[in-house]
Design a protein around this nucleic acid. Structure first.
Lengths: 144, 144
DNA sequence: GTTGACCTTGACGTAATCGTCAACCGGACC
DNA sequence: GGTCCGGTTGACGATTACGTCAAGGTCAAC
């Protein structure tokens, strides 16, 4: 496991294309060193990329991710900068927790749907046929 | 609380624009009744919209949401259809659980960052100044 | 010394998800 | 009858996140 990576090594490792990495660089999310013209990614760049991709997976835009990474990069910020960063991070945490609730509700709903299907499959095996199966029985019509 | 809604009532209630609702209809996600030309949304449409928006919030594309809603709409499907739906729902559950893990890791990381900032703010108040604050101390360089 | 693999920049294309604007209609109210 | 409010369709524009060429540089291998 080496200490530097070429663009396609890194791309392959994370399942993205070299084009994507260049794009992230264009947007200020990465800034790999160069050997001549070629990009040379460090472990640090690699860790950054991991953060970027996870950020994407949880639904942040590249712009938002760039902001957060810039906050991470504060080496020796002013107190106000630090406080700003703190506020933003806490806001992100709150947003993520809200999103987690959404996800948990979706999971619960899908579980209900699965139960419903399983029940109707077993009922069907008992020759009880010919009535509605899913419909909106699993869909809340009032609770929003 | 009435039983039917106009397009802008519903849009306002859910914080989207009428344009979006028409768009969802265009993509087959909604199919409100008409009074003349005007759309007339039922409670059922409203519940569907809630599902659509939550689906969006958790990162599904409109196409994916349409598929899932169509699965929900199976009234009296064939056994194979039911089994297919079951498989897809279970896959979605797995995907959502993976996403929840991502979110939890992001939350944990943001918490670490917050702790770090808080510590360096208090250290700063103790007149210990002039050294790096965040940097990549909070960023994993090896664990991916 | 040329082939081939890998890299570069730059320009243009594309899919998803709407926003915006134009032009129009129908009903309520003055 | 005019006007305003809210609704309609349709077309075009904007943004994000890349994909897809095109045209070429570099470097080891044969």
């Amino acid at each position: 496991m080496s200490d530097t990576f070429t663009i396609s090594q890194l791309a392959a490792e994370f399942g993205v294309t070299p084009r994507a990495l260049r794009f992230y660089e264009d947007r200020g999310l990465l800034a790999p060193a160069r050997r001549g013209q070629a990009r040379l990614y460090s472990r640090r760049d690699r860790a950054r990329l991991a953060l970027i991709l996870r950020g994407k997976r949880v639904g942040f835009s590249l712009t938002e991710i760039a902001e957060m990474l810039n906050l991470y990069d504060l080496e020796d910020g002013q107190e106000t900068q630090l406080r700003t960063a703190l506020g933003k991070f806490r806001a992100q945490i709150a947003a993520l927790e809200a999103q987690r609730r959404d996800i948990e509700e979706s999971i619960a709903e899908l579980h209900r749907a699965c139960d419903f299907i399983e029940t109707s499959l077993s009922e069907r095996r008992e020759r009880v046929v010919g009535r509605p199966v899913i419909g909106y029985a699993v869909m809340p019509t009032d609770r929003v």
